[in-house]
Amino acid sequence: MSVRPPVPADWTPRGSVPVMVAMAPGGGSDRSARVIAQTLNEQELGFDANVENKEGGSGAVGWATFLSEEGNGNTLLVAETALNTLPLVYEDVPFTYESFTPLVMFAQDSRMVVARKDAPYDTCPELVDEAGRNRVIAGSSGKTGADALVTAELEKAGGRFDIVPYGSTGEVLTGLLGGQIDVAPASAANAKPYLESGDFKALCSLSEERYDDPVLGRVPTAIEQGMNATVIMWRGVFAAGGVADVQRRYWIDKIEQGMRSQTYRDYIKADMLIPANLSGEKFAAYLDDYDAQMREIFR
């Protein structure tokens, strides 16, 4: 077995730095990875951060691929909540969130529940009541992501749903628009245009507080409607497992510098995200707590 040479105290990345995202181009995970890469490149640090998409298996393909980068400090991974939940649903995957080195959690996200404008329910409790008595079809962009968490909360409250899987949130909302499904979880940024046009109505948000937005701010939270239900997604950056501490510290510092940029601020505002900044051991502790919560939901 070969032994890696020690990492020098003045280590810096060089050449092309892959920023892996385990989802397809065009979605929220891909966008977040491109923002992180852009904020690093804007600092002109002597390397080029380039996004690489390794989609498949709701993230399993990309994350399994990143396992092979063990000890390589010259590569990054941008991931989200499904890194916790996928190994709970598919126990045969070769990784967990603990397989990688947490660097920085840079944002949080939530979901709201939308229905067509002519739906016979106006709130999430009314939806749950209907889904407890009659067939209600919900769309979902995956078994392990935020959409699945929304459905789990609604079912915990007493609803029962037939789930139609789609490849992305955009496809879910197209399905709702076309009448293939009755309700859909959606991010605030994706839902807003349909609420403004009047095609959809929002039944509730699963955020802890209402959105600070003239349109979305009119949507009550599930908590306001008497349901003890929230869905919070994290988005963060990881290094490979087994990297040196000097590499971990370097990346935390440069990612946090990037989060002070206008590019990052514009991203948070446009995507209606909750800004966050947990790094190193604090991010690792958050992941441990989050994993315990997900085990309660997916047990």
Rank of each mutant, 00 (worst) to 15 (best):
L45G: 01
Y250C: 01
D162Y: 15
W251K: 05
A49M: 00
P214W: 11
M112C: 12
F66A: 15
N50S: 12
T96C: 08
V19Q: 07
F161L: 13
P193L: 14
G145K: 10
P13H: 10
S2C: 07
D92N: 14
G198Q: 02
E281H: 11
L273A: 11
A285E: 14
T230K: 07
P125W: 05
V172R: 11
T65L: 11
C204L: 06
A79L: 08
Y90T: 14
M20K: 08
E171R: 13
V114M: 04
E42K: 01
Y121G: 03
C204R: 06
A82P: 04
S187V: 09
V237T: 14
S140Y: 02
M227E: 03
Y121R: 03
A191C: 04
R133W: 09
T96G: 12
P220T: 03
L88H: 06
Q225W: 04
A276K: 04
N72Y: 08
T144V: 07
L176E: 03
K192M: 10
P220Y: 06
A131H: 00
V7M: 02
A22K: 05
G178V: 08
V3Q: 06
P94M: 05
R218A: 14
E130R: 10
R248L: 06
K282Q: 14
D212K: 12
V237D: 11
V243P: 04
A152Y: 00
R299Q: 13
E208T: 13
Y194T: 04
K254V: 12
S16G: 07
E208V: 14
S29H: 15
L45C: 01
V61I: 09
T75C: 13
E98N: 10
A138Q: 04
G71Q: 08
R249Y: 09
K117R: 12
D162P: 13
T230E: 09
L173I: 08
I268M: 08
D212A: 13
P102M: 10
Y286T: 08
Q257Y: 08
F47E: 00
V164M: 14
R133H: 14
Y211K: 08
T101W: 02
I36T: 08
E98W: 04
A229K: 02
L154N: 01
A202T: 05
M112R: 06
Y264T: 06
E171F: 12
G142M: 10
M20S: 08
D92Y: 07
R299W: 07
G242V: 03
V61E: 10
T151R: 12
N72E: 07
Q257E: 15
L103Q: 07
T101G: 13
C124H: 05
R249E: 15
G145V: 11
M259W: 00
G170E: 13
G280N: 09
E55N: 11
L154P: 00
A148E: 01
R160P: 04
V183K: 02
F283T: 05
P120M: 05
K54I: 15
G158S: 09
G178Y: 12
E98H: 11
V17A: 01
L203S: 00
S110F: 09
V164E: 11
A64T: 13
Q43E: 03
P165C: 12
E91N: 15
C124L: 03
E42D: 14
M112S: 12
L88G: 09
A270E: 15
D213E: 06
L83P: 00
A189R: 07
R135Q: 14
R248F: 05
T151A: 13
T174E: 14
P25K: 07
M1A: 12
A146M: 13
S32P: 03
T174H: 09
M227N: 03
V231W: 01
T65F: 11
V215P: 02
